[in-house]
């Protein structure tokens, strides 16, 4: 029944997977407001990501021969430089994810620039590379953020939810060279597995999802995306989805996608460069704010 989609990916591949991990570690709102320093258990639970889970993921990716993109707050790069160098040495990519996982919507323009510059300096000093990709830490960005990203040499963002394939972003009324690679929440492990005792997360202390059901959802999302010829990216947090048991699930999920055969596994920068070199194949989307939507609708 499925119509063969228009080919948009290299070598006639039917779909694209950009496997991505957000290595938040102990960063986040509690580090931004400083309360983490009175919460050693929360700190250690977060630090599990770069300490135990990233090495486990690197092993898994090596076994399966798949590249991935790791969005790492630069505080985490500063404190786990060896793990981050190992990410690069293993052929993967690192992207920007704030310094302490700041919410960009809460920052002034100079504050955003300062986080971007500080983080790029840390990436260069510790890893010898600058980040080309960006993923919003903690929710929304600021209206000025896309312009700042373009000005600071970023090639793509992977933050929004509004498509199932990448597009070029309109900034200040002009088509820019900033690519957006949307990331669906169905492939965010927080929605299934994240749990902290205090402060409670999820807020109602909802149950940890069944690993088997979660794997089934993820596989269905991939199957649908492959059928539609789109791009699937993940928001997997090593501390959440690479515990010993969940890493078994993660491995089965990647195996499922690899087994399909005609799917292009790419890093964020590879995707963005492909989009920019084949502009006729991808959409352009703008800053249709709420006002624009309302005018069109009436």
């Amino acid at each position: 029944m499925a119509v063969t989609p228009e080919p948009v990916w290299p070598d006639g591949r039917r779909s694209c997977v950009m496997l991505a991990f957000d290595v938040d570690g102990p960063s986040g709102s509690a580090m931004v407001d400083g309360s983490i320093w009175g919460m050693p258990r929360l700190f250690v639970q977060g630090a599990y990501g770069p300490f135990r889970a990233v090495p486990r993921i690197l092993d898994l990716l090596e076994r399966l021969g798949v590249p991935a993109t790791f969005f790492v707050p630069s505080w985490v790069v500063e404190h786990w430089p060896d793990v981050c160098r190992d990410i690069l040495a293993s052929g993967h990519e690192v992207g920007h994810h704030g310094y302490r996982h700041e919410r960009y919507a809460d920052l002034s323009v100079p504050e955003q620039e300062s986080v971007l510059q500080r983080s790029q300096a840390i990436f260069e000093a510790q890893l010898g590379v600058r980040a080309l990709g960006f993923r919003t830490p903690t929710g929304d960005w600021h209206e000025a953020t896309p312009r700042l990203l373009a000005e600071h040499g970023f090639v793509y963002s992977s933050s929004f939810r509004d498509d199932d394939r990448p597009y070029r972003r309109v900034i200040d009324g002009r088509v820019s060279d900033l690519v957006e690679i949307p990331a669906p929440v169905e492939l965010d492990d927080y929605a299934y597995f994240a749990f902290t005792e205090d402060p409670p997360f999820p807020k109602g202390h909802d149950r940890i999802a069944a690993y088997r059901v979660t794997l089934s959802n993820w596989c269905k999302e991939f199957d649908g995306m492959h059928r539609a010829g789109g791009l699937l990216t993940t928001t997997f947090h090593p501390k959440i989805s690479a515990t010993p048991g969940r890493a078994v699930v993660l491995e089965r999920f990647v195996e499922h996608m690899v087994a399909v055969g005609d799917c292009w596994f790419a890093t964020g920068t590879e995707v963005a460069r492909w989009v920019l070199s084949h502009p006729e194949r991808f959409a352009v989307r703008g800053e249709t704010g709420w006002d624009g939507v309302r005018e069109e609708g009436t």
């Binding site: 807020k203 109602g204 202390h205 149950r207 515990t243 010993p244 969940r246 078994v248």
Partner: peptide, 24 residues
């Protein structure tokens, strides 16, 4: 629990435990 989410599936929870055992 605080949000009174539904009681989890017994079989699913056992399978979660068994997967953690496998990872261990």
């Amino acid at each position: 629990p605080l949000g009174q989410s539904r009681i989890a599936s017994y079989e699913d929870v056992l399978e979660n435990w068994q997967l953690e055992l496998e990872g261990c």
